[in-house]
Design a protein around this nucleic acid. Structure first.
Length: 198
DNA sequence: CCCTGATTCGC
DNA sequence: GCGAATCAGG
């Protein structure tokens, strides 16, 4: 892949929006985050601040006696021209089991304003689950932010801007940040969503 | 460990 | 110019 005008454009745009190099790389495809960063530097827009007088980058003092060479006999070297863009096969079985694993689903950055907790706006949540959560919220321990541990459900309840705010606090589901009830609403199967321009 | 950007340097 | 390897930090 080469840096066509269009690709550079996307790069500039996303970088300007504060997207991370890896996110940009993913979006562009065919390049690694290193490539993106390298390009960013070459384009001279490494500093996102960009405000006129501001100096910011390179708080580095002149010479760098960093660990230089690579006295490594044989580092690694792969040399594989693997430029494979695999689109997850998704071996979807008819099993009613929701997401067995949810690696990292990072998406666009949320502008700002509200961190917007999970709280699915009563979208497509099964009534049962909804009821269950309601019930749970009554028996929740209602702990504060500082009381959260790896073993307490971190499901937020209420408006953080008011006093009526607390975290569920019940025992979490193994490996999850929430208790059983909240896990079920937090990790929705996420209906079919297949969009990938290109 | 995951991630981030920054830098170096062979190509 | 390009980007992998590496560095430095969160």
């Amino acid at each position: 892949m080469s840096w066509t005008d269009e690709r550079v454009d996307v790069l500039k745009k996303m970088w300007g929006e504060g997207q991370s190099a890896s996110q940009i790389a993913k979006e562009l495809g065919g390049v690694t985050r290193n490539a993106v960063i390298g390009k960013v530097h070459r384009l001279g827009l490494s500093n996102r601040a960009g405000s006129g007088g501001g100096k910011a980058a390179a708080p580095k003092a002149d010479t760098k006696p960093k660990a230089p060479a690579k006295p490594k006999a044989a580092p690694k070297k792969a040399a594989s021209t693997a430029v494979a863009e695999i689109q997850e096969p998704k071996t979807e079985s008819a099993s009613p089991a929701p997401q067995p694993k949810v690696p990292h689903a990072r998406r666009q950055i949320i502008p700002a304003g509200q961190p917007l907790p999970p709280q699915p706006s009563a979208n497509e949540i099964s009534p049962e689950v909804l009821a269950k959560v309601n019930e749970v919220e009554k028996t929740a321990k209602k702990i504060t932010l500082m009381e959260l541990t790896e073993k307490t459900c971190k499901w937020p309840v209420g408006d953080p801007a008011t006093e009526q705010f607390w975290f569920c606090g019940l025992a979490v589901q193994q490996g999850k940040p929430y208790c059983e009830a909240h896990v079920s609403v937090a990790f929705q199967p996420m209906s079919s969503r297949r969009d990938r321009r290109r």
